[in-house]
Write a protein that binds this DNA or RNA. Structure first.
Lengths: 232, 232
DNA sequence: TTATAGTGTTCCTACTTAGTAAGTCTACAC
DNA sequence: GTGTAGACTTACTAAGTAGGAACACTATAA
């Protein structure tokens, strides 16, 4: 992802992002210099600088001329994240509590949303997690698995490839894994495909019949892996 | 701040936020019900629902009719914050390093930006911090001061009011504090007013002459407090 | 069989807001 | 003449808001 696009995730417009990067690269500049260097017209440059300052991406140095200095990127991002964390707490405190719903079969679409759900299931697990995913997905969620292990969650993992993490129980499958499967605490299950980008689709459910079905299926999968391993 | 506005901070449009809140309050609904309940026209309701699902604010339940279930607010916010933390790391790794600048006198405007700077100075302090602020500002930054104390930073505080935190050295002033002052590690200083909302203005500098000036001034202020305390 | 309600999708018009793009004018300093 | 700053203007694009029409299908009641 391009740097400008990442900066827009933190609330900057394209112009503001371009100006911010220019300040980082060129050092402190005044408004006239910013306009010249970036090619943004002077009126727009001054407007965007004012907005960048208001958003906390730059500070003003009032000397013979008014110059602008960029805020360090880690500081700028931390400020934004901190603000969202505060908003998060305020939302949790004030938002209407979710009405109890009849749990059914929830469809989760898009690789990003599926990864989020997968990670949240690991995060909220209390006792044990069975997970069957390709190695590259494991790479992505390694920090979450590590954190789960650290708090005493039993992690049983079926995967292909060479991924390893101490404290986990790993069963290696020779066959490519076409689907992901995850069971957390024998109460909720996630399954489906995740290699179709935004078209990936998974099913999430807390239905006990589905959970039981998947538990049996994964136990059998593990038995098969152990049997074929014994023969090698 | 209103709930809808807080939700827009997490990337939802007003319609999406209204629909999300309706799902929380009413439980799982289909698109037709969402349109009826919210007053949003059906075409817009379906469009906004699709976008809300894409943004990870709701999941689809595919039954006799397609219903939508809201994602828990803490989960939704955590997902967004986690994404920004990842973008933060990617920015830090790829953004051009800030060109060394001649440190001058930086003007920081707006209460939010000033609070951010104040907190970042405490966060990055290595040895000691002298801070002189009104009590209500201290309330705001108590977690940051606590964290600094926990990592062994010497916190010397001049304030009014009854604020207290174990591990800090507090000098109470009888007079109202019109300005804030902070010196971190004898290397950087922040001073100015913060009770004017977005019109608040502070000065930040690493200039040694200004730092020395403020050190002397705060030492004298502490001496005066101690002397008047002795007389009481 | 007919009428009505429910459900979902696609396409349309129209207004508002924000961002992008660029310019003019005034004023001052060097 | 160049540099610097600010205020104001015009104009286009994109996204969000607001609402509707049309089509197709299903379910239910009379």
């Amino acid at each position: 992802m391009e740097i400008v696009e990442r900066l827009t995730q933190f609330g900057l417009t394209r112009h503001e992002a371009v100006i911010y990067l220019t300040l980082l690269a060129e050092g402190d500049l005044n408004g006239y210099e910013v306009a010249k260097t970036t090619g943004i017209s002077r009126s727009n440059a001054y407007t965007s600088l004012a907005s960048l300052v208001e958003k906390g991406g730059a500070y003003v140095i009032e000397e013979a001329t008014i110059r602008y200095t960029p805020v360090a990127i880690s500081e700028f991002c931390d400020n934004k994240i901190r603000k969202l964390q505060a908003a998060r707490q305020e939302l949790i405190d004030t938002i209407p509590r979710k009405r109890d719903t009849v749990e059914g079969y929830i469809t989760i679409k898009g690789e990003g949303n599926i990864l989020n759900k997968l990670r949240n299931m690991i995060l909220e697990a209390r006792e044990r997690v069975y997970i069957s995913v390709p190695g590259q997905i494991l790479e992505t969620v390694t920090p979450d698995i590590k954190a789960a292990v650290d708090r005493g969650i039993k992690m049983v993992i079926i995967t292909n490839g060479a991924w390893v993490l101490s404290g986990t129980i790993i069963h290696r499958s020779d066959q490519p894994l076409q689907q992901i499967r995850l069971i957390a605490d024998s109460t909720n299950v996630l399954t489906g495909d995740i290699n179709n980008g935004e078209y990936s689709t998974c099913l999430y459910s807390r239905k006990q019949n589905l959970v039981d079905l998947f538990k049996d299926a994964m136990k059998n999968e593990i038995k098969l892996i152990e049997m074929t391993k014994g023969n090698q």
